[in-house]
Every structure is written in structure tokens, then in C-alpha cells.
Design a protein around this nucleic acid. Sequence first.
DNA 1: TGAGCTCGGAGCTCGCGTTT
DNA 2: AAACGCGAGCTCCGAGCTCA
Length: 265
Amino acid sequence: MSMPCFDELVASLSPNGENETWLWGQINKILPVKVGLRILYLLLIDSGESIELEQFRGRAADVVFAFGEMIREYEDKKGKKRDERISAGLPGGDEPFKSKSRYKNHFLAYMRKDGKLDGAMSLLKLVNMHKDTKARLLIGMTEAGSDFARLENPPIDLSDLDHSLSQKEVEFYLKHIQKSVPGEFQAIRWLLKTISSGVTAREEINKKLMGEMGSAWGASHAVIDTQRAGLTSRASELGLIRAFKNGVGLSVRYEVTTEGKAFLS
DNA sequence: TGAGCTCGGAGCTCGCGTTT
DNA sequence: AAACGCGAGCTCCGAGCTCA
């Protein structure tokens, strides 16, 4: 299926161009997107080019909920700390309905009443949607989505619950956003450059972000905070930055990793 | 006019440092 | 060594808007 263009995405409702429109900050992990994408890929082997959106969303939420619980159980048993867990963002907990619904809307995909596409899968142009002649809403994969879905993934394919993404998946993601999702590409470059220049603490990054993008976005402090948190979380999952605590105080600082430096150059 | 939807923020939990 | 406090990361609630 062809890629959705920027105008078809909910992101286009912001007054800024595609380069300045970052992924919404609550999309803070890539693994939940990858798992959903693999499920869609498998469903499409039987169904052809597209499948009914709600059928996919229901099935994916159920499977990923079980997957998330299984990973959490492993992490609990190992006594893993918050920043070592790969289960963040996956649905789970004792309110399955709410958690699945959040997963479906943030990490999977849906079409708003106004026809704009929302959800990480759509915003990253890994899927596309259309209505058939009977007004049924169908979802299919773009070529990039299908390529990304097929790549071997540590927890899904190797039962490796300590790593969320393989090196190949990281490389694919970065190449893909460079080519097709310029807002996310620019956001990650902005963050790496910012940290490289010595702006390494949470509030300093917020301040710089507010100064440079705040007025264009019309963003409150809370929105800046959300965007910053999501971006640092994604960049860290991709292995481009690392958080550390320097001796005194609690506050975290970030540094650009070797991989991050390679990406910048 | 009220049911459903969207956006953005409120607030929870965890873990670590500090205080008593 | 227990209690406290706070930063960080994450979850999901709900005010206000839209649309039937």
C-alpha cells in the first residue's frame, strides 16, 4: 500500500511544516510499534493487501497484552530496574480494557472522524488506511512497514527479553525516518546536537526546546516536557543517547553514545 | 442536548539520596 | 535503618469541544 502523505496525517493539523512537526511525545517507545506491525504482517499473509482496521486492532491488543505481561513477569523475577525494562509502553496491568485502548490509539493506528490518520504506525508511515466501497475501514502496510515488520526482533524471535530492538532494526528505523519521516529525523538530530553542545540536563533541554520551538508550536511547559520526555526515551531505546547520574544529586544527565555520534556525522 | 472524541495535563509508582 | 522527599518515567483521566 502507498505511504500516507503528510497532509493525510493528524500531524498536519499543526501550523508547522513536516520538518518541524515532531512525533507526539507520548509515543515514547518503538518496540510497541514493532510488535503491532509484526502482528499486522502475519494477519496480512492470510488476508491479502488489507484487513479491517478494528479486526486488526482487537487482535493486536490481545496478543500484545499477553506479550507485555510475559515480559513484565520476566523483568519482575529478575528484579530489573525501571530503565532496564523493555516492557514500557506495552499494554498490561489490572485494567486491561483501558490499557489496551491506550495502546491501540497511541501505538497502533486509527482514523479520526475528520479522516486524518493518527497513531504511531500511521505517523511513522508504516501503514496506510482507506475505506472500501462498503465504507469499511481497512488497514494495510506500506513497503517500509512490511520491511520493518520482517526484520528479526530480539524478544519476538529470539526470546531475548533483555533487548528491545536489534542493530538492524535500529539502522532501518533511522534510514526510514531520514527518507520518509523528516519531523522525527530532525527531532533526533536536534536532541543529539543539543546534548553534544553541553545541554545535558532535563530542565536545560526543556528550556532550549521552549526557546527554539515553543512559540512556533504554541506549546505550554507541559507539552514541551512531554515532547522532551518522549524524544529522549526513543533516542535512548535506539542506543543514540545514554542517561547517567553524576555523583551529587539525583538529576539525570544525558550523553551521546558512539552510535549517536556516528548518526550525527 | 448529550454522547463520543480529542488533547493535553494530572498524578501515580519506582528508586535513590537525604534526614532523623 | 526507617522515614521522608523528590526526580524521572509512565499511565490514563477528564474538561471542553464536536457532531449527530
